[in-house]
């Protein structure tokens, strides 16, 4: 029992800017779970799951119960109350922008990342991630609402950035100028290491708009640059022999007329 509680997963009910900031700094605090929501979830599991899954359902229920009891004192504090207030504001905003017309609970999709963080995102955001949407389409609506979808190759930090991108992209797409400004600001905030991890995650989840935006940004960085610059920029190993490289360079000499002088070092 002690080990189980130690390895228990952390769930996040709502993603807000503050929550994402906390996620990026690896500090995640539990938000109170609504009794009614839990009851309905339990009821749903009881009705739809097979016997084997029923056992898992019990285990999860116990975990949730334990965590709830722990959080009751914390929820009483003033700080926690403030966060709940922020959550409500964020929730109302999301409701305004949600594309689905179903119940609020059905408009949420749970995603569990590689490092054990569970995100609940709006259905339209999940739809942007075509890999996730394909998974949802392959399962029944009832079970997908109850179980978090596992994302084995995506870390919480990347998923938080992807969700942020989808939300801001929708806001900014009202005008082309705002959209371009947003994409430049979004990319400028990333270092090369973060850029690589994010583009890999976007490719895995098939989030086309983000994948194209990041690819364009990277392509822009290496345009008119020398071969040596590109190798150094990406930390890529050169596996050509000296003879091979000389031959290719001669064949493609026409391509180096536009190379920036300062990248020839």
């Amino acid at each position: 029992m002690a080990k189980e509680s130690g390895s228990s997963k952390i769930e996040m009910l709502e993603i807000s800017n503050e929550a994402m900031a906390e996620a990026q700094s690896s500090k995640i605090e539990m938000l109170e779970i609504n009794n009614e929501a839990m009851a309905e979830a339990q009821s749903s599991k009881t009705v739809t799951m097979k016997p084997a899954e029923a056992e898992e359902s019990k285990t999860e229920t116990q975990k949730i119960t334990d965590e709830e009891s722990k959080n009751v004192p914390i929820a009483a504090t003033e700080e926690e109350s403030k966060k709940l207030s922020i959550t409500k504001v964020e929730e109302s905003k999301n409701a305004a922008t949600a594309t689905t017309e179903g119940e609020k609970e059905e408009a949420k999709v749970s995603l569990k990342t590689l490092d054990g963080v569970t995100f609940e995102v709006e259905a339209w955001i999940a739809k942007e991630m075509e890999t996730v949407q394909a998974y949802i389409d392959d399962t029944s609506a009832d079970t997908s609402a109850a179980i978090a979808i596992p994302l084995h190759n995506v870390a919480g930090r990347e998923l938080a950035r992807m969700v942020e991108y989808c939300k801001e992209h929708r806001r900014a797409s009202v005008s082309a100028g705002n959209l371009k400004e947003f994409e430049e600001r979004f990319a400028a905030a990333l270092n090369l290491y973060e850029m690589k991890d994010l583009i890999i995650a976007a490719n895995y989840l098939n989030t086309k708009k983000l994948l194209e935006s990041l690819s364009r940004c990277i392509a822009k960085a290496i345009k008119n640059k020398s071969v040596e610059f590109v190798r150094d920029y990406f930390g890529v190993t050169n596996d050509y022999t000296t003879e091979e490289e000389a031959q290719y360079r001669e064949t493609n000499a026409w391509a180096f007329r536009n190379v920036d002088e300062d990248s020839r070092n």
Partner: peptide
């Protein structure tokens, strides 16, 4: 991955692709 690399190269012109082909 190979497919991400191709996606990036799609935004380059012929000259830049020729240069990129010599990276490795």
């Amino acid at each position: 991955s190979y497919e991400i690399l191709v996606t990036i190269l799609m935004f380059l012109n012929v000259g830049d692709i020729a240069a990129a082909s010599m990276v490795n």
